[in-house]
Design a protein around this nucleic acid. Structure first.
Length: 589
RNA sequence: CGGGGAGUGGCUCAGCCUGGUAGAGCACCUGGUUCGGGACCAGGGGGUCGGAGGUUCAAAUCCUCUCUCCCCGACCA
C-alpha cells in the first residue's frame, strides 16, 4: 500500500519560472521530474512509475514481434566510422576519449551496434528475418534543449531494427511495426495520427511518423479535413488552384520592362499590376560540392525558382540537392553569377547545368508549380529591370524540376482536393525503411538459397518514451493540473481521506484503499494530516485519473468518486466500490 | 552559432535606474486554534545577492570578463 505521507512527491504551488509549455510546468509541479541541467532531468518517484508503465506496455507489445537486447550506450569510434556517421553527425554526437586516448561516443541510436552484431552473426537467409529491439538511454548534444522533456539531451528510446532478405520482407517487418505501434499508442491512451515523413538525407524509402497534435510540438503536419491524407510539412504536397497565365506581349520574346527600385515580389507585382502568382521568385544558394579531382569541398551555385507567392521548404531543398549543405549566396557571389544585384535576378541568359553531374555549371531547380506555366515575369539580371514573356523550358532550360515549396493551409489535398490544415505536433514514434545503408557500409552479408552473397535490407523504428508522457500531459490538462490515461498514470486511483484525525474516516479510507488494492488496482492513499483543500489540490495536480474522497458521507455508507478529466462526481456505496471501478478501469472485453 | 531575457533563502519575486546594515509571499521548524478546495495567530531557522576582477570610504546596485538557465532563430534519420 502506497501511503502519501510516507512518499516523496514534492508538489509545487507555482511552476518554475523557466517552464513554458504545459507539460513542463505540470511535470515539475507534480513532482514527476526535476531539472539537473539544460536538457537533463531526474525522474522522481511518481515520474519513474509512469515511465515504468509506459515501458512495460512498449515491451509487452514489442515482444510480440521482436526480441529485446540491451546494448551499450558507449560506442567505439570505429563503428561510427564504418557507417560514416562519425563524420556526418557533427556536434550532435557526444564524443569522448577513454584513458588510453581511444575515442568513443554516446549512442544517439544503435544502427551501428545492431548492424555490427548482424554482420558478425548472421550467415544464412534461414536466419532471416530478425527484429531486434532495445530500450536504452540515448544521447544527443542538442543545440537547444527545450520545453521540458520534449527536447532533451538524454532520453529513453525504444529502438528496433529489422533485417530481411529482400524488400518484400522489409515490407512485412515494417507493417508489423506499424501495427504494434498502433497498439502501443492506443494502449497509452493517446490521440495520434500517422503521417508520411521526410526520409531525410540518410536515404531510405518509406517513412512514417506517429504524431500527437499539440501547440507545444515542434513539427508541422499537414492533414486533410476530409480524407486520411496526412504528411509532415517537409514532405506534404498539395493541389494548387489553377492560375491564369498572362497574355504574350510584343513578339513573344523576352521583354524587358523598367522597374526602378522595385525589388520584392510584392513591389514588382503591384508596380506591373499583376499577381505574385505570375511572378518568378529567384533564390540564390551555394551548395557544398566535392571537387571530383581534389576531393575538397567547394561551393557550387544552386538557383531555385519558385512561384512568387510560394515559400521554399528546407527539407525538400535538401532532398533536391541530395543532402549537400546549402547556404544563401553572398552579394558578391550573386554579382559574379548574375551580373546583377539581388532583387532583379532571373534565369535567363545563364548556361545552366544539364544535371547534377555537370559540376562546372550552376544548377537551376524549378519548382513543379512552375512547370507548364507560361509568360511569367522574372528579374532581368539587370538593375531596375524585370522581364516578361518567360516560359520555363522555352525561355530557359532548368537542370531539373523539383518539389521545393511548402504547402500552405487551405490548399487542396493531393488525394481528394479538400482543404488542407496545418498543425503543430509532437513526434512520438517513427518507422523507417532504412534500406541497405548500414548493412552495405558495414558489410553485413548472408547467403541466399542459391548460395549467393546478399546484403540484408534493414528497417529502423523508434519510440520516444518521454514524449509519450509529455504528449499525454499536453493532451489532458487544465488550470489545476493534468490527468493521464489510466494505463500510464503513476496510480490509477487516489483515495483521499478528508481528515485523518477522525478515526472513522481514517479507517474507512484505509479499508477502501486496501480493498481496491487487493482487487488489483494501483492505489495511492492520501493519508497526510493536511487540510482537505490541500489534498484535493494535490490530487488534481498529479495526473491520477480517479479520486475517491472518503469524507462526511461515510456515515451514510458512501464515498465520492471523481473522474479527474471530466470532474464528474459520483456517490458510490462503499460496499460496491471495487465493482464500480471494474466497470471504469477494467471494462469487460 | 545569431538575437532577446533572466540569475537575490527551497519556490515565485521585489530591491538595482539614483551605491549607505538584504526584503515580501509561499514553503520549512515550534506552540496554539482550525479542518470539504492550497487556513489563522504567535515565535523561529535559513541568503558568500551565479562566479572572478575592478571603481569607491562603502557594491545586490556602477564597470569589465566569465558561467549557467530560458525564449526566438539556425540546427534536429
Amino acid at each position: 500500500m502506497h501511503r502519501w505521507s510516507q512518499l516523496f512527491i514534492p508538489t509545487l504551488r507555482e511552476a518554475p519560472a523557466d517552464a513554458e509549455v504545459a507539460s513542463h510546468k505540470f511535470l515539475v509541479r507534480a513532482g514527476y521530474i526535476r531539472q539537473v541541467a539544460a536538457g537533463l532531468y531526474s525522474y522522481l518517484f511518481i515520474g519513474q512509475r509512469s515511465f515504468n508503465k509506459i515501458v512495460a506496455i512498449v515491451r509487452q507489445e514489442m515482444d510480440t514481434i521482436g526480441q529485446e537486447f540491451y546494448l551499450p550506450a558507449l560506442h567505439p569510434r570505429e563503428l561510427w566510422e564504418a557507417s560514416g556517421r562519425w563524420a556526418v553527425m557533427g556536434d550532435n554526437l557526444f564524443r569522448l576519449k577513454d584513458r588510453k586516448g581511444a575515442e568513443l561516443c554516446l549512442g544517439m541510436t544503435e544502427e551501428e551496434v545492431m548492424t555490427d552484431i548482424a554482420r558478425k552473426e548472421l550467415r544464412s537467409y534461414k536466419q532471416l528475418p530478425q527484429i531486434w529491439y532495445q530500450i536504452q538511454s540515448k544521447f544527443r548534444d542538442e543545440p537547444r534543449p527545450k520545453s521540458g522533456l520534449l527536447r532533451v539531451r538524454q532520453f529513453l528510446m525504444k529502438d528496433s531494427y529489422s533485417f530481411d532478405l529482400d524488400p518484400a520482407g522489409l515490407d512485412v517487418s515494417y507493417q508489423k511495426h506499424r501495427d504494434v505501434y498502433r497498439r502501443i499508442f492506443d494502449r497509452c491512451g493517446l490521440k495520434y495520427m500517422i503521417i508520411e515523413a521526410h526520409s531525410g538525407a540518410m536515404g531510405g524509402s518509406q517513412s512514417e511518423e506517429f504524431m500527437v497534435r499539440t501547440p507545444a510540438g515542434e513539427d508541422q503536419i499537414v492533414s486533410c479535413e476530409n480524407c486520411d491524407y496526412a504528411a509532415n510539412l517537409e514532405k506534404a504536397t498539395s493541389k494548387l488552384a489553377p492560375v491564369t497565365d498572362l497574355a504574350l506581349e510584343g513578339d513573344g520574346s523576352p521583354l524587358e520592362v523598367h522597374t526602378p527600385g522595385q525589388k520584392t515580389i510584392e513591389d514588382v507585382a503591384r508596380y506591373l499590376g499583376v499577381s505574385p502568382k505570375n511572378k518568378i521568385k529567384t533564390l540564390a544558394l551555394m551548395a557544398a560540392e566535392k571537387d571530383p579531382k581534389t576531393g575538397k569541398s567547394r561551393p557550387r551555385p544552386v538557383i531555385l525558382l519558385m512561384r512568387g507567392d510560394h515559400q521554399m521548404n528546407e527539407a525538400k531543398l535538401s532532398s533536391a540537392v541530395e543532402g549537400r549543405e546549402t547556404r544563401p549566396m553572398e552579394a558578391k557571389e550573386i554579382e559574379d553569377l548574375f551580373k546583377s544585384p539581388a532583387g532583379f535576378l532571373g534565369p535567363i541568359g545563364i548556361d545552366w547545368a544539364k544535371d547534377m553531374k555537370d559540376v562546372d555549371r550552376p544548377v537551376l531547380f524549378v519548382d513543379k508549380a512552375l512547370e507548364g506555366r507560361s509568360n511569367l515575369i522574372s528579374g532581368a539580371n539587370r538593375e531596375d529591370y524585370h522581364v516578361k514573356n518567360i516560359t520555363p523550358g522555352k525561355s530557359f532550360h532548368p537542370t531539373a524540376y523539383a518539389d521545393l515549396r511548402s504547402v500552405s493551409a487551405g490548399e487542396g489535398c493531393p488525394k481528394c482536393g479538400s482543404p488542407l490544415r496545418i498543425d503543430t505536433a509532437v513526434e512520438i514514434g517513427h518507422i523507417f525503411k532504412l534500406g541497405y545503408k548500414y548493412s552495405e557500409s558495414m558489410g553485413a552479408r548472408v547467403l541466399d538459397k542459391n548460395g549467393k552473397e546478399v546484403t540484408p535490407i534493414m528497417g529502423s523504428y523508434g519510440i520516444g518514451i518521454e514524449r509519450i508522457l509529455t504528449a499525454a500531459v499536453e493532451q489532458g490538462n487544465d488550470d489545476n493540473g493534468f490527468w493521464l490515461p489510466a494505463a500510464i498514470a503513476p496510480f490509477e486511483i487516489v483515495v483521499t481521506s478528508t481528515n485523518v484525525r477522525d478515526e472513522n474516516l481514517k479507517n474507512a479510507a484505509e479499508n477502501i484503499a486496501q480493498r481496491l488494492e487487493s482487487s488489483g488496482y494501483d492505489v495511492l492513499l492520501d493519508d497526510r494530516d493536511e487540510r482537505p483543500g490541500v489534498k484535493f489540490k494535490d490530487a488534481d495536480l498529479v495526473g491520477i485519473p480517479y479520486r475517491v474522497t472518503v469524507g462526511r458521507k461515510v456515515t451514510e455508507g458512501t464515498v465520492e468518486v471523481v473522474q479527474r478529466s471530466t470532474r464528474e462526481m459520483t456517490d458510490v456505496s462503499i460496499a460496491a466500490i471495487t465493482e464500480y471501478f471494474q466497470g471504469k478501469l477494467r471494462p469487460a472485453l
